[in-house]
Computed example of a mutant assay.
Amino acid sequence: MKYGSLILEKKEYVYLKRILNISGYAENHETQKCLARLLEELRTAQIVDDDEMPYDIIRFNSKVTITFDNGIKETVQVVIPTDRDINTKKISVLTPMGSALIGYSEDDIILWNFPNGIQKIHISKVEQEGSYNGIDITI
């Protein structure tokens, strides 16, 4: 991990903690396990102001290109749950993939237990498409 731990912007961190603490949010057990791991990682995350956020950190609205161990490349955008749209590859932070990516940085390699088993993914590119800074993110 490039920065030693997850890095999250303060408002995004508060929002994420709030939605993760809603009991029974995930529909299935495997997704719940992914969200529990994210909650555990948040305990040691670096929480910073927006102007201190490194540009290559995955946050809400980031477009992320990932490469799987089998060579398949995929570009997704990590968004808040209400903005998810599988047709435009906007994935909710509450999905297994979204929870695996948030707070990591470009060039990080993640081993994550997805519903179909443990996978190794390389974050090859992070692009910022704007943030939710200054916007009241409510559930």
Rank of each mutant, 00 (worst) to 15 (best):
G4Q: 09
L8V: 05
G130S: 04
I57R: 07
R43L: 05
L94D: 02
G103E: 06
L8I: 05
D136M: 12
V48M: 03
P54G: 09
L42I: 05
I22H: 05
L8P: 04
K10L: 10
G103S: 09
L6H: 00
I19T: 02
I139C: 10
G130H: 06
I66F: 00
I7T: 08
Y55C: 03
T67H: 01
N21L: 09
N133T: 12
V126Q: 01
R59P: 02
E40W: 00
I135M: 14
D49T: 05
N116A: 14
E27L: 15
T67F: 01
E127Y: 01
N28F: 15
S124M: 06
I58V: 15
I22S: 08
V48S: 03
E41S: 07
N70S: 06
E106F: 03
T67R: 15
L35A: 12
I47W: 07
I72W: 00
V14F: 09
L42A: 11
E52K: 14
D107P: 01
T88M: 08
I72L: 06
V126G: 01
V79E: 03
V126N: 00
K17N: 06
K73V: 02
L38M: 10
V48T: 00
P54M: 06
H29W: 13
K33L: 15
G98E: 09
L111D: 12
G4R: 08
G24E: 08
H29C: 11
R18A: 14
I58T: 07
I22Y: 11
I139Q: 12
G130A: 03
D85C: 01
L111C: 02
L42Q: 07
C34V: 10
I66G: 02
